[in-house]
């Protein structure tokens, strides 16, 4: 009797259900199957792999006569050596000016930097020392110190014990408010567009994507600096600006009637750090539509004067 079962498989007509099932599965298969002609093309990819392009001949051959600081700026402003429109770039630009180092500014974008963020500096190259490696962001301070040692034995500046604490006010509290005001406040979107989006691409889809990217990364930065038990994924505007107001009051109190912070006889990195924000916030031609931080700043005459002094002396 076993043979009858075996034989029945040879006659498809006898098993109707099974046939219906196979036809359904055939349709499903055909839905997700790559058509053979297309498959033949994909079988042959990659068709040709081109070798890497060689670097342009001009790169690396020419000696750099002057130090080049790559920052966010416009062509015109770079030509005139005007302040950058990005606070972290302007901080180092101002600091290099304070130290009296020769440099030119070059407009650039984050993609050009070895660390992924501006500023960075390409030192002069000469036959004796060869090409200097790019100096990125925070390492600029040490580089400047080395440069200064070569020129004159500069006296070691005594750091105030409160330096770190006050530096955190500028680097965290004021930066937070800056990020909120420029990137998240939709009133300032035209400004953001002019500074960071329009120079990168004229395609409106790319611009839309970039605006979204800037918005999310700014809000991520702000959320990161929230205190650890504040509600997740929430930005409290009032808290940000209340913090900024207190910070500015504290900084104004620290400065008092002095010319520079921490009673120095010449401006230092701290002055550069604060100037980077005050310059842009107090600039009437900068194009702020909503400038709450700038409004707060104007009530502290000492800081306003601090900015004017730097502007007159170094820019």
């Amino acid at each position: 009797m076993a043979m009858t079962n075996d034989d029945s498989e040879q006659f498809p007509g006898t098993t109707k259900q099974q046939d219906a099932r196979t036809s359904i599965s055939a349709i499903w298969d055909s839905l997700f199957r790559l058509p053979p002609p297309l498959k033949r093309i994909f079988d042959q990819t990659p068709l040709v792999t081109y070798p890497e392009n060689a670097a342009p001949l001009r790169s690396g051959k020419i000696e750099r006569r002057r130090n080049a600081l790559y920052i966010f700026t416009t062509d015109e402003a770079a030509y005139r050596g005007q302040p950058s429109f990005n606070p972290s770039c302007l901080k180092w630009q101002a600091f290099l000016r304070f130290e009296g180092l020769e440099f030119v500014t070059v407009p650039s974008s984050n993609h050009a930097s070895p660390s992924g963020s501006l500023p960075f500096l390409l030192p002069t190259s000469d036959a004796k020392k060869g090409r200097g490696a790019p100096v990125v962001g925070g390492k600029l301070k040490r580089w400047v110190a080395v440069q200064q040692k070569e020129k004159v034995k500069s006296k070691e500046v005594q750091e105030d014990v409160r330096y770190e604490a006050y530096a955190s006010l500028v680097d965290h509290v004021i930066r937070r408010a800056w990020l909120y005001q420029l990137y998240l406040d939709s009133a300032n979107y035209p400004l953001l567009h002019r500074l960071y989006i329009a120079p990168c691409s004229s395609n409106s889809f790319v611009q839309l994507a970039m605006a979204h990217q800037l918005h999310t990364s700014a809000s991520a930065e702000i959320i990161k600096s929230n205190s650890s038990s504040s509600p997740s994924n929430t930005i409290d505007e009032d808290e940000i600006f209340r913090g900024a107001e207190e910070a500015l009051a504290a900084l104004a109190e620290l400065l008092g009637d002095e010319q520079w912070f921490f009673d120095q006889d010449k401006p230092g990195l701290f002055d550069a750090g604060l100037y980077a924000y005050t310059e842009l916030l107090l600039d009437n031609d900068f194009g702020w539509a909503e400038n709450r931080l700038g409004g707060m700043l104007r009530s502290h005459a000492g800081i306003v004067k601090h900015r004017e002094t730097i502007r007159e002396m170094y820019f």
């Binding site: 604490a165 955190s168 205190s227 009051a249 900084l251």
Partner: peptide
């Protein structure tokens, strides 16, 4: 009352540096 300037600075310093270490 308003905190003194040093207090504000120190609070911000604790909030940024100490939080990182604790994290």
């Amino acid at each position: 009352t308003r905190p003194t300037a040093d207090d504000t600075a120190l609070a911000s310093f604790l909030h940024s540096s100490a939080q990182t270490l604790l994290d």
